[in-house]
């Protein structure tokens, strides 16, 4: 697991460096979990990436901001809005479930997605986010390219 994690993080960092400007990243690990945090610039946008590998689950956060506005945010956090979309209701029986979803329009709208990878996020971003300051228009529904991941 340690080797696979290191290799995965290395690939993410390499791709981040080749895609974004002014990339900064930190990693940390305990005997049971590892975390990678990256931030960088993509044209006029700021990008914030978190990958937490914990209890055999990959928890991810891929956020694109323009100033303080969340243009898009892919994550699989236990968000009640995503839980309600998936199960029709929220409550203690659904608490803690990891639901892949996409926030748009400064987090005023939310869509369920398939589990997203960093590579899939880059692919989606290049298809949907213009480097210039022009309004991006309506983002397309994400299609995640298949990739082999340890999780």
């Amino acid at each position: 697991m340690v080797e696979k994690t290191s290799e995965y993080f290395a690939n993410v960092i390499i791709l981040a460096h080749s895609t974004f400007d002014d990339v900064e990243y930190t990693t940390d690990a305990t005997p049971e979990r590892t975390i990678l945090q990256i931030h960088g610039n993509y044209g006029v946008y700021k990008v914030f990436i978190t990958e937490l590998l914990s209890e055999e689950i990959r928890k991810y956060r891929y956020y694109i901001l323009k100033k303080n506005r969340v243009e898009a945010g892919f994550d699989n956090a236990s968000d009640p809005r995503a839980i309600r979309l998936k199960y029709g209701k929220i409550g203690s029986e659904y608490a803690g479930r990891y639901i892949p979803h996409l926030h748009l329009n400064d987090k005023t709208t939310i869509e369920l997605t398939e589990n997203m990878t960093f590579f899939g996020f880059i692919h989606w971003m290049k298809e949907n986010v213009s480097l210039s300051s022009n309004p991006p228009g309506r983002f397309a529904r994400p299609t995640i390219p298949t990739s082999s991941l340890p999780w």
Binding site: D28, T30, R33, I35, Q37, F48, T50, L52, S54, K59, R61, Y63, L65, N68, V70, G73, D75, A77, S78, D79, P80, R81, I83, R84, I90, G91, S92, Y94, A95, G96, R97, D106, K107
Partner: peptide, 27 residues
């Protein structure tokens, strides 16, 4: 994960990107 009101309050008054910090906090 159980309360819409809690999430809205956090996003409006504390941090819109709480998900990122929650991951680090969990770590």
């Amino acid at each position: 994960s159980e309360s819409d009101e809690f999430v809205i309050n956090i996003e409006e008054n504390v941090n819109k990107m709480w998900e990122n910090e929650l991951a680090e906090w969990e770590f």
